[in-house]
Design a protein around this nucleic acid. Sequence first.
RNA 1: GAGGCCAUCGUCUAGCGGUCCAGGACCUCGGACUUUCACUCCGAGAACACGAGUUCAAAUCUCGUUGGCCUCACCA
Length: 469
Amino acid sequence: MTVVTRFAPSPTGFLHIGGARTALYNWLYAKHTGGKFLLRIEDTDRERSTPEAVEAIFDGLNWLGLTADEEPTFQFARRDRHAEVAHELIKAGKAYYCYCSQEELQEMREKARAEGRPMKYDGTWRDRDASEAPAGVKPVVRLKAPQEGDAVISDQVQGDVRVANDQLDDYVILRGDGTPTYMLSVVVDDHDMGITHVIRGDDHLTNAFRQKALYDAMGWDVPTFAHIPLIHGPDGAKLSKRHGALGVDAYRDEMGFLPEAVNNYLLRLGWGHGDEEIISQDQAIEWFDIKDVGKGAARFDFAKLTNLNGVYLRQADDTRLANDIAPLIAKQIGVDAIDAAQKEILIKGMSGLKERAKTLIELADSSAFYVTDGVTSFNEKAQSLIDSAPEGLFAELAKELDALENWTEENVDASVRNIAEKLDQKLGKVAQPLRAVLTGSNSSPGIFEVMIVLGKSQTLKRIRKFDAQ
RNA sequence: GAGGCCAUCGUCUAGCGGUCCAGGACCUCGGACUUUCACUCCGAGAACACGAGUUCAAAUCUCGUUGGCCUCACCA
């Protein structure tokens, strides 16, 4: 049997980090088993679903590389099919019309709660004849759920979970206006799409029992379920906007994370393979099995994600990184886009730059000095390094460096060391002020590397600004 | 309130009855390297929620307690 998994978000907002992990696990499991990964947009909530959200979800998934093997299914478009199934169930005596009003339902729940019973529909219309129906009420359709015995789900993550059927009620599958509810839509779509493994958040665990009753009523095979624990915020509470429940686009655009780092982090959040931490996508596909996902909820930790991002940043291709930060730098230096020459400089300096950054944001911040003409601002420490530089240092540097014929790292290195000796200073006393005038900062890639990447004329231009000092 | 799920360092996890006075990573703190910062390396800190039981032997199995989470809509 070929495995078919799916990711089924409702387009009521961006793709959040928990959804991204669910998608990743579904994708990985499909790849691991040589199966298929499908996408279904659950847009049956017409009030809250938006085309923008659909776009945001596709965008996020594409960024993470979690692409579906077939065209996505849009649930709302299948509403007639869903209703058809509901009517089939009525015909088969496995579902029935219910004419209860909202008020009656509300009373039912309050009474149940007061008596310490589960808050469920009491089956008022389960066996009542339609002739008793009140006039003018558009009935809903309820599934005749089993009332005795236990229902068992063999969950791939949670193990065997058992619930007594008397805890479950005859839930609504078709609304008064004839539209399907989520419970009906999911089951019909998962069945029609041939989904073999339903991997989703464990907030759906109790829904699985309701859905099982529907599969059984239709005589359909129940898919294998795997309910993965939810992700919590750093404080252990449910993930909210203040924590990580941002769209993945925020992780990309505002925080500067790399997709491979996010995937690796998400993979390790709830799953492990021995002592492995840095796991390539191919390795993940080979190792990942849904059965190995942990049962406990995990907290989201930005520090670890950031560290991981640093690892991937250092491994990343220089040209790719230069392209990634190009728009950020352009914005920073106030141009529409940086030119080819500037891009070249960034690529040239990237090996020294990427070692010092953990995110693309940091990388852009620390790279901008390379592409400006002169240094546009000096931080406090740089300013004080310049102020306390040995007398005549900059004039001396300008003179000596200008005289250099071959502008190589070896030569500028020797030249600067010479000057330090000549002025009877330690190298640091010369290198630090030099760094300050060249970069505007007290920290940067190796100073000789900076001089080479900057080039002779730009280096001298920056030094000469202070040679009167 | 009713049902369900969960529980190893601050965090993510390894561990699937003996090899664990519990391993790795992040984190924090020392140190080495060094022209700064970073990288890298070395070292330190830090956990089996609690209580019973099963067993020659329990982080690993059972039960209870406590704590956390999820669900209980004509939302998905």
